[in-house]
Simulated scan of single mutants.
Amino acid sequence: MKSVISFTDVSLRRNGQAILKGINWDINSNEHWAILGLNGSGKTSLLNIVSGYHFPTTGDVSVLGNKFGKTSLPELRKKIGFVSSSLDRFSQLVNNETIEEVVVSGKFASFGLYEHVSEEDYKKASSLIELMRLSYLKGKSFQFLSQGEKRRVLIARALMSNPEILILDEPCSGLDILSREQLLAIMKDVKQNNCHIIYVTHHIEELVKELTHVLLLHNGEIVAAGPKKEVLIDTKLSKTFEVPVKINWKNDRPWLTL
């Protein structure tokens, strides 16, 4: 089985504070992971290491066969797509652009188009828009889209560069129920686009069946990591969230109650 990500005894310290402690974590081919944990549990720091923006204080990291310390991290980043609710702050830069222009800009990792775009690039952008079930919005300005539609456009934009890993960092944050379900419904399509998903959330009900594995983080340490139904049990989730919880499964999807 091909290794996609490997962390061995990884720790991260900032200003004398331990952010991550003794992380041992492996993602293999055909696995799609969710990461759960409270604010401050280390989720963002973990993502920053995966993306090559943080270097671990101790331990070994390999991403897509690239061992940290022996590879070009800027080159590695080109193989990783990233979508987060935090990208909303860039919306004003592309408000007047069509969704096709926003999507195709993902090829150049820019907000806005400053380089030549070929007909093939636009064909690919069009196919990704269809993949995200947004064909009815072709030709529309980005500013007129709903928040959920904008997030799906940004996922299409991230896929424009053919990433091998796609990080979705709380993509449903701030969305209403309908927009959330529309976004979650495209997970199957994203999975079939030959990339490995890392999905970060606070909300366990977002873990649709396409997400196969779960990592639970608490205070910078792993509570549990592995296949979804082995990890998502009452005791481990209660430790992760610091409150007694119970999990229920419905249609292969977990739901949490206190």
Rank of each mutant, 00 (worst) to 15 (best):
V10W: 00
E230W: 08
S45I: 01
T212Q: 09
E164M: 02
G139P: 12
D26V: 13
G65C: 08
G37M: 10
L76W: 01
G22Q: 11
I129A: 07
N194W: 08
F108A: 09
F90P: 00
W33V: 14
T201W: 06
Q147V: 01
H196T: 14
L20Q: 11
F142K: 15
A34S: 13
E242Y: 00
L87R: 00
E221I: 07
I198F: 02
L73M: 12
I167H: 08
E115L: 02
A109M: 05
G37I: 05
K138I: 14
A34L: 10
F144L: 11
N248H: 12
L87Y: 07
L87T: 09
E101T: 09
K191W: 14
I23F: 03
R77K: 01
F68P: 09
S126N: 13
D234V: 01
E100K: 03
V10Y: 01
K239W: 03
L168K: 10
I167G: 04
V94I: 15
L36D: 07
A156R: 04
K67P: 02
I204R: 09
V104P: 13
M160Y: 08
I5T: 08
F108E: 08
A34W: 05
E205F: 09
H203G: 02
A18Q: 13
D169I: 01
R13I: 11
S146Q: 12
H54R: 00
L131N: 10
